[in-house]
Structures are given as structure tokens and as C-alpha cells.
Design a protein around this nucleic acid. Structure first.
Length: 759
DNA sequence: GTTTAGGGTTAG
């Protein structure tokens, strides 16, 4: 039997016998008589010709219908005998165009596979993406590639309609390939943070330019990048809503990482902390934005820090306080760590997009010594000579630009640790804490030598002092004291629970149930018609009756199509029109509940004063200032567990962290002292603040600890003694006056009386 | 069915 290959574009009747009719591959099933049917498609896989006996062969092939979803409309075909042999000779695996026209995990594909896969026998998997080695690139093709980034620019505005990213990549073939990405949306551009990042691009076309091949994105382009650190987590940074990622991708990334690590030719441009900045040098800085001010239309001031102190004197730029976005001043200690950066020309626009609190990487920043000419107002210029000024010059040469780093990136995690290390001495400066508390100390009591009820875990090598000595000593530093608890606030311990934003460092009370219930009832008020987003499947859910026997009712729910197709239906629901009590009741049956409402005919989230997420008994809140909340479909691709972080990220919410804040009055024989328990409160109580917000046991533990510490013990009739590590720091109060504050650090309560049995 | 850019320091 001869095998004919249809030429591209040939009509269906051209070479096919007339008694045969063509059907779509998606219609093939075991209940259909296929004997007079044909299919038309492309050979996306051609197996090896296997010889069974003399002149008897077997060969497997996969045929995929064109212009269709890859994992739903291909068939496995087993060819036998001479047909297998003829096929093997006549047919080539055709990848004249890039294999799949759409990401195989697109919602459409997922939806179809979930409904059809059980009924129809087809290829079990989408055809794999094939990646062309950079050394094998030929002009005039559309390909998928992997590479290691050796140069990149942040996206910049082109003269056309799009932003443009330019980068250069390499791979073990050692060929360096320039790439250009044009996209209107910044979000669709590759998320490259540093040289050495790994990049995967789908559907880029090869072009000849200046005697070498370059890559440019083309239709259906998608890109994913990865950190290039050997041994680091392989976390895809996608630039599209859905993308394919499997174990083979993981392997490829790891192979490229190890290869790159062995290459000395890869230029390494480590980011430099402010403490290591050299005058005249260009460098990349990883930092947090604290404040911003427009100087003129070609220059914007960015005030940043990275928790380290630059040994050189830094240029001060004086700006009118009302021109500053963010705090107009900081504590004296913090000011010493803040660098003023002048961003010029094209960077003024990108500086505008930044939010106070953002974590940034600023590329190709220049430290200029002795600068005295700065647009706008500078303080007395004569005493600014030999001060370092940081300039981000106009243009994009050498990758000059600004990039916001995501909070979960390893570099930001490290930055936060550095900043928090400083925060131990300073973070409680701003009036936040001083506003919440204010009561003066009183008189001393007797000293004791009893066993301590706490244990210090710090490594500070300081001798214990008395409170009166401590009060006389210079402000700052750490101190060890032996003290008793005299009093504490708040007496109502639930008031010690706060919500803290690590981005803008604001702190707020946890909204009480009455307030939250009010928001739910207000949200269910708008019951007009409402359009759910395209990715959602809508249905109803029965609310289990409460113990009071309240009437059952059904509420609207919306589910993510993609999560459903992954069998994760119950892991996340968007619930509409429920009361707070009903939401809590349903939370026992669904892992994640996001309350939603109808607003102006659209489905939206509730006001951020309400929890945006219920997980069992836990509720999670977002920062009103730092969130850009919107209802979006979360991607759970490769995610083991959908948790508050995944949901918050998908919804653009800056997650607030539960924390505990108390003010304790301590005493010893010499004096009394007010101290805060905040940063290490969880360590002190051996309880997480999040648990304290949700469960009685954790609350009991805090209550028992405070009861124990404030009640007379045994025959001595004294309160228990505590060995405590205190950190002292200067902080400005409301009136701008600096005063010394103390905070308990590195200290854990150890002597809890036996816990009562629980059922 | 594709214009833009196609790396290589501002000059404050």
C-alpha cells in the first residue's frame, strides 16, 4: 500500500479517494465506524521502524490536527507490515511550524481534556516542546530556545507602539545570540533580574542581522525565566497567564545552571551594598524605596536604603517636605543609611511607576564624588564637596534602568534580613508604636536571686546591668537585665494582636467581628446581575445550617476553570453574598474561600478591611495601601498547596502579617523600665501570632504566660524573675522629639506550668 | 500576519 504525503495547502479531495470522508480527530471514538473515514493532520511524532520478522514491521506515529489544541486532537497510530515500512520512508516528522499553536495548559485545552479525555482514545499527552540549541539556529525559522542571559536591558519604550527588551543569551554551544522582545505590556516581557538568569522562550523567529542570527518574538510568544543560582529553587517567573512547566524543564534549568557556573567567560556583575560602594564606580544596587520626590521634569529623587551604611559621606538633597512622597524625614540613625539617587530623563517615567516600599534593583548606578551641582535645591553646596552622589543617568546603555523585584526573590529575602537586622535598633522609630502606648514609669522594688523563667538565646557577650545603670548608659546597643514584670498592656490580650505590613511598615489593629460582619452584609446588598470573569465557572453551594437551626440557603460560588481541570475544585472557591458566619461555616469544607461581591455588574473583591481569604479558622488580610487588588484566576501550576501567599499574589494583595505587640513595665531593685515586646514576641511566647489570631490554645498560652509572670510565686511571694536581652534604640515621637526605646529580643519564656489537658 | 531595535555609559 503506497503512502502519499499531502502537499501543504492541497484541497481535501485532491489526492483522497472519493468514497472516504474526512472527520475531525476530536470526533473519533470507539463507537464510531472509522472504516470509511480519513483524518488530516501533521505528523508530530514518528517512531522508529521496528522489525518484527522478515518483511514485517511496526511503527508508531502521532498525527495532530492542525489549528487545534494539542492535547485534545492528536491520535496515536500504529502502522503494521509494509505500510509501516512505506510510511517510514515517505514521511518526515513535520515541524515546519512551531508545534503547538497554544499553550497546552490554556484554560480551553484544560476544559476540553477534562470533559473528553475519558471518552476518546487519543494521544495521552501534549507533544513536548522541542528546543533548538543556539548553535543549531538557522535563519527563517520559528523556534523554542533555552539560554543563559549574558546581557540584558530592562524593557524601554520603543519609537513604535511597544516596549522593547534587548538581551543576549548563550548556551553550551557557546554561541551568543542577541534577542529582541517587543510587547506592548511590560508584564509580558522577560523578568530578568541579573546576568546568569536562565531564560526559556517559545515561538521566537530567527533573523539575520549584521552577519549573525538574532531572535525576535513572534505570534504566540511566551517567556519564562529562572534564577541562575546552582542549587536554588527552580521557580518559573512567567510572563504569561499560563505556561507549561514540567520535570524536563526543571532538568534543563539545572543543567544550564551548572554549565554556566563552570563558565568563567560569563560576566559577573554582583550587586554591591551601599557599604561597599566605590567612588566613580558604576554598580547595581538592590534596595528598598523609602521616599520619592520630583526635582524637575528630567530628574526624580529616589531615597533608598539597603540596611548597610556607606562609608563615604553622602550628598544631601533638600526638597520641600510637601514635594516628597513617603515620609519626609526619618530617625537620625536611619537617615545615615539612606542614599539619595537622582534618576534622569527616561528613568523619571519608570521612577513614577514605583511604589514606596518597593524592593528595587537599580542597574548601572553611578557614584559620583564631589558633586555639587544638582538640579533643584541642595543644601549649602560648599560643605557638599567630596560627598558621594548617586546618579542614574539617562539612556539604557549597559542595561541602565530600574526594576521592581518580587518580594519572594532570594535577593529581596536577603535584603529584608539585613534591613530587619537594623530594625532591631531602629524600626520602631516612627511614631506608630509611640502613638499606641504612653504611660510613664514608677518606682523600684527589691532584687532577687531566684531561678529565671526565661532564657536568652542571643550571642551578645554583655554583662547584666541594673535598670538604673541601663538608663544612665548611652542610647543604643543591647543590654542584659534581670527583672520582674510589674505590669503590662494591653490587659485584654486580643488587643495585642496587630496586622503589620512589611512593605510600608504600617501597623493596624485586627478588625473586630462586628466590623467585618458589617462589611459582609454591606457587600451582599448589591444583588444586581453580575458578570463573572471568563475563567470562572459559576454555581451554587448549600450553606450548612448553623447550630441554631437557621434556615439552609444556597449561595453563588465561582470556581477557577483551571483548578477544576486539575482536580482542585475544592481547594479554592470565590463565595458571593454570604454572611461572615456562613463564610466561617463553609471554611471547614473548603481549603480557601475568597469572599466576592457584585459591584456595578462586575464580580470584585470585598473592601480590604475585610479578610480577603478564609483558610480554615485563619483569616488573612491585605494592606490597603500597598495592594493592587483585582479578581484574577490564580495559577496553581506545579503548586503543591494553594496557600495564602499564592492567593494573595494572584489577587495583587500585599499580605499583612499578624504580629503581637505588648508594652511591659519591668522592675528590679534599682528602677523600672518600659519596654516593648514585638519583634521577638513569637519567640517569647513560643506561639505564632497567626495561630494566636485563630486558635484558643495559642491564646491560652499567652494568657498563662502573662498570668504566671504577674502572680506571686511560692514562699517568696515575689513575681518570677526574668533574664532578658533588651535592645535600645532612638525613636522620634509625635512631636519629632527623639527618645530612647527598649525592646525585648532573643528571649523566650521557658517555665510554663503544665498545660491543661484538652479534648 | 509584524513598525519598534539590532547593547557598549551622562556629561545633570
Amino acid at each position: 500500500m503506497p503512502v502519499h504525503v499531502l502537499s501543504e495547502g492541497a484541497g481535501p479531495g485532491a489526492q483522497v479517494p472519493a468514497h472516504l470522508t474526512r472527520i475531525s480527530i476530536s470526533l473519533i471514538s470507539t463507537s464510531i465506524d472509522c472504516s470509511k473515514k480519513t483524518v488530516k493532520g501533521k505528523v508530530v511524532h514518528k517512531g522508529r521502524l521496528v522489525s518484527l520478522a522478515d518483511d514485517d514491521f511496526i511503527l508508531k506515529t502521532v498525527i495532530q490536527e492542525e489549528d487545534s489544541q494539542p492535547d485534545t486532537t492528536s491520535i496515536n497510530v500504529v502502522l503494521l507490515g509494509a505500510l509501516a515500512k512505506d510510511f517510514n520512508q515517505a514521511v518526515n516528522q513535520g515541524v515546519s511550524r512551531p508545534p503547538p499553536p497554544a499553550d497546552p495548559r490554556s484554560p480551553l485545552a484544560a476544559k476540553r481534556s477534562s470533559t473528553l479525555s475519558a471518552e476518546v482514545s487519543r494521544a495521552p499527552k501534549a507533544p513536548k516542546y522541542t528546543y533548538v540549541k543556539l548553535g543549531d539556529l538557522k535563519p527563517g525559522a520559528v523556534v523554542n530556545v533555552y539560554g543563559v542571559v549574558v546581557f540584558f536591558k530592562q524593557p524601554f519604550k520603543s519609537r513604535g507602539t511597544d516596549f522593547c527588551s534587548t538581551l543576549k543569551i548563550t548556551d553550551p554551544s557557546n554561541r551568543k545570540i542577541g534577542c529582541t522582545v517587543f510587547c506592548e505590556k511590560l508584564d509580558n516581557h522577560p523578568k530578568i533580574f541579573r546576568i546568569g538568569d536562565i531564560i526559556r522562550m517559545h515561538r521566537v523567529k530567527t533573523q539575520f542581522f549584521n552577519d549573525s542570527i538574532t531572535l525576535v518574538n513572534t505570534f504566540g510568544f511566551s517567556v519564562v525565566t529562572f534564577d541562575g543560582t546552582v542549587g536554588g529553587a527552580v521557580e518559573p517567573r512567567a510572563s504569561s497567564r499560563s505556561f507549561h512547566f514540567d520535570q524536563e524543564d526543571r532538568r534543563t534549568v539545572e543543567e544550564l545552571r551548572s554549565w554556566a557556573a563552570s563558565q568563567t567567560v560569563l560576566p559577573s556583575a554582583p550587586t554591591i551594598p551601599l557599604s561597599a560602594v566605590q567612588p566613580k564606580a558604576y554598580f547595581d544596587l538592590t534596595c528598598q524605596l523609602l521616599a520619592r520626590a520630583d526635582i524637575d521634569c528630567t530628574c526624580t529623587l529616589l531615597r533608598v536604603w539597603d540596611g548597610t551604611r556607606c562609608p563615604h559621606r553622602l550628598l544631601k538633597v533638600i526638597v520641600a517636605p510637601d514635594a516628597i512622597e513617603g515620609p519626609s524625614s526619618f530617625s537620625t540613625e536611619k537617615e545615615k543609611l539612606i542614599a539619595n539617587i537622582l534618576a534622569y530623563d527616561n528613568h523619571v517615567e519608570s521612577a513614577k511607576q514605583l511604589k514606596i516600599g518597593d524592593f528595587l534593583r537599580i542597574y548601572n548606578l553611578r557614584a559620583i564624588p564631589g558633586s555639587s551641582k544638582v538640579p533643584g535645591l541642595t543644601s549649602s553646596q560648599s560643605d557638599q564637596v567630596d560627598h558621594l552622589a548617586f546618579h542614574l543617568h539617562g539612556g539604557t546603555a549597559y542595561g541602565r534602568g530600574i526594576r521592581v523585584l518580587p518580594e519572594n526573590s532570594p535577593d529581596v529575602q536577603e535584603l529584608k534580613r539585613t534591613i530587619e537586622g537594623f530594625a532591631e535598633d531602629d524600626e520602631l522609630n516612627d511614631s506608630a508604636l509611640l502613638e499606641i502606648w504612653s504611660t510613664p514609669p514608677e518606682s523600684p522594688s527589691d532584687a532577687g536571686t531566684a531561678e529565671s523563667s526565661t532564657e536568652r538565646s542571643c550571642s551578645h557577650d554583655v554583662q547584666p546591668t541594673t535598670l538604673s545603670e541601663l538608663k544612665r548608659s548611652d542610647p543604643g546597643g543591647v543590654h542584659h537585665v534581670r527583672v520582674q514584670l510589674r505590669s503590662y498592656e494591653p490587659q485584654r490580650l486580643h488587643q495585642a494582636l496587630k496586622l503589620y505590613c512589611s512593605k510600608c511598615t504600617s501597623m493596624q489593629d485586627v478588625p473586630d467581628d462586628e466590623l467585618v460582619a458589617g462589611l459582609f452584609s454591606e457587600a451582599s446588598g448589591d444583588s444586581g446581575p453580575c458578570t463573572p470573569p471568563a475563567w470562572a465557572l459559576s454555581g451554587r453551594v448549600n450553606i450548612p445550617g448553623g447550630s441554631s437551626g437557621s434556615s439552609k440557603r444556597a449561595l453563588g460560588v465561582h470556581l477557577s476553570t483551571q483548578l477544576m481541570s486539575e482536580g482542585k475544585t475544592k481547594e479554592l472557591i470565590f463565595l458571593m453574598g454570604s454572611t461572615l458566619a456562613e463564610t466561617c461555616r463553609l471554611a471547614s469544607g473548603y481549603q480557601n474561600i475568597v469572599p466576592v461581591r457584585s459591584s456595578g455588574g462586575q464580580l470584585t473583591l470585598l473592601d480590604l478591611s475585610a479578610p480577603f481569604l478564609f483558610r480554615g479558622r485563619k483569616r488573612y488580610y491585605g494592606c490597603r495601601r500597598c495592594s493592587e487588588a483585582a479578581l484574577r484566576e490564580p495559577s496553581a501550576e506545579g503548586v503543591e498547596l494553594i496557600d495564602e501567599k499564592i492567593v494573595a499574589e494572584a489577587l495583587g494583595i500585599q499580605l499583612l502579617k499578624f504580629c503581637l505587640l505588648m508594652k511591659l513595665e519591668l522592675q528590679d531593685a534599682t528602677d523600672t523600665l518600659e519596654v516593648f515586646l514585638w519583634r521577638d514576641a513569637e519567640l517569647f511566647f513560643s506561639v505564632s501570632a497567626e495561630d494566636a489570631a485563630a486558635n484558643q490554645e495559642a491564646q491560652d498560652r499567652i494568657r498563662q504566660t502573662m498570668d504566671f509572670l504577674s502572680s506571686p510565686e511560692g514562699s517568696t511571694g515575689e513575681c518570677p524573675w526574668l533574664d532578658v536581652c533588651l535592645s535600645a534604640y532612638r525613636a522620634a515621637d509625635d512631636g519629632g522629639q527623639n527618645r530612647t526605646c527598649y525592646q525585648i529580643c532573643h528571649t523566650a519564656f521557658t517555665k510554663l506550668p503544665s498545660e491543661p489537658a484538652r479534648s
